[in-house]
Simulated assay, not measured.
Amino acid sequence: MTAATVSTAPAGAAAGPEPGSRSGTTGRRGRRPATTILVTAVLAVVAIYFLVPVYWVVVAATKTTDDLFATNGFWFGTSFALFDNLSAVLTYDGGVFVRWFANSVLYAGVGGLIATYLAAAGGYALAKYRFRGRNLIFGLVLGGVLVPGTATALPLFLLFSQLGLANTYWSVLIPSLVSPFGFFLCRIYADATVDSSLVEAARIDGAGELRIFHTIGLRIMTPALVTVFLFQLVGIWNNYFLPLVMLSDQELYPITLGLNNWRSQTDRLPEFYELTTGGVLLSVIPLAVAMIALQRFWRGGLTEGAVKA
């Protein structure tokens, strides 16, 4: 036996969207050509703004001093001197640039890691524990975010001079261990992502507070931690004023201070232009590598620790 299929829709009515498919209206609203073009144009302008200086550094590092001023700044010169320039950078004055590079890795790497951990611990504690003065502490942290680093450099110098720590590695490293912005970000992120029921379940299973923080809290907060670390890494790596105030020994200089020392000698020794441009190119590479390497933790950490409803 066969049965005829009777349609209940009015004659001439258009068939609706299939189950699971987006409606045509929503799709059209989400892909307006004008909005897409505008957003793409803005992103292109921003990308050009950030990439043009890097491109200029790469091109300038391939030139001799004569080509640097005699040729177009955004195109290569008559001779390709990149490897000669980099070799001169790494060997000048007994390889002092390598020492500056190692100092920057110490200041930025160790300072960034410890600052990120302390910010995560403090932010997690403020988000997950209830105690008297919690909001006051958070308010003080917000106040610390508003204070620029240049305003505290001179008081820090006077303090470290009294302690006998001026002109040492500690005078640059210790101030780098504190990140008010990282503390603020970790507190907000932990409050939004670390579910209290997950913490309570771990406590019921007998886990201690430190274990809960290290095995649950840090994993869920991975995107925020990567963000804090990158901000701190870039901030310390590019920091100029604090080392300028604290350090007088050239052996303790970071890259920023060392390159400025070379640049200041270009008026009487033009060959320092080649050293400066080559050194700037080498100084950019670690930051680019760190950004590319840590992107996967940004993406991967967004869904870690999710609690199913």
Rank of each mutant, 00 (worst) to 15 (best):
A4N: 12
T5L: 15
P10H: 10
A13Y: 10
A15D: 10
A15K: 14
S21G: 09
S21W: 13
G24W: 06
G24R: 11
T25E: 12
G27W: 12
R29F: 09
G30V: 01
T36D: 08
V39H: 04
V39E: 03
A41Y: 02
A44Q: 01
A44F: 01
Y49V: 05
P53G: 02
V54F: 07
V57N: 09
A61Q: 05
T62P: 14
K63Q: 08
T64C: 09
T65H: 13
D66I: 07
F74M: 14
G77K: 14
D84S: 11
V89G: 04
L90A: 08
L90C: 10
T91H: 13
D93S: 13
G95Q: 07
R99G: 12
R99V: 01
V105C: 13
V110M: 08
V110W: 08
G112M: 11
L118M: 11
L118D: 07
L118R: 12
A120Q: 12
A120F: 04
G123H: 06
A125N: 13
Y129N: 13
Y129T: 07
R130S: 12
F131T: 08
L136P: 15
V141M: 04
L142R: 05
G143S: 03
G144A: 00
V145F: 02
L146Q: 10
T150C: 01
T150L: 03
A151I: 02
A153N: 10
L154K: 09
L159K: 05
Q162G: 06
L163E: 04
G164T: 02
G164M: 02
N167T: 01
Y169W: 03
L173G: 01
I174D: 00
S176D: 02
S179Y: 05
G182P: 15
F183Q: 04
F183E: 00
F184L: 05
L185I: 01
C186L: 07
A190M: 09
V194F: 08
V194A: 04
D195C: 04
D195N: 12
V199E: 14
E200C: 05
I204A: 07
G208T: 06
G208Q: 14
E209I: 02
I212T: 15
F213P: 15
F213N: 15
T215N: 11
G217S: 10
G217L: 10
I220A: 07
T222I: 05
P223S: 01
A224I: 03
L225T: 11
F229Q: 12
L230T: 08
Q232I: 01
W237I: 00
N238S: 12
Y240P: 14
F241G: 06
L244E: 10
Q250A: 08
Q250P: 14
E251H: 07
L252M: 06
L252C: 04
N260R: 06
S264V: 01
T266D: 05
T266I: 15
P270L: 00
E274A: 13
E274R: 15
L275I: 01
T276F: 03
G278I: 00
L281S: 02
S283F: 01
V284R: 09
I285T: 02
L287S: 14
Q295T: 06
F297R: 13
W298G: 13
W298T: 07
G301M: 03
G301F: 01
L302V: 09
L302K: 06
T303R: 14
V307D: 07
K308D: 04
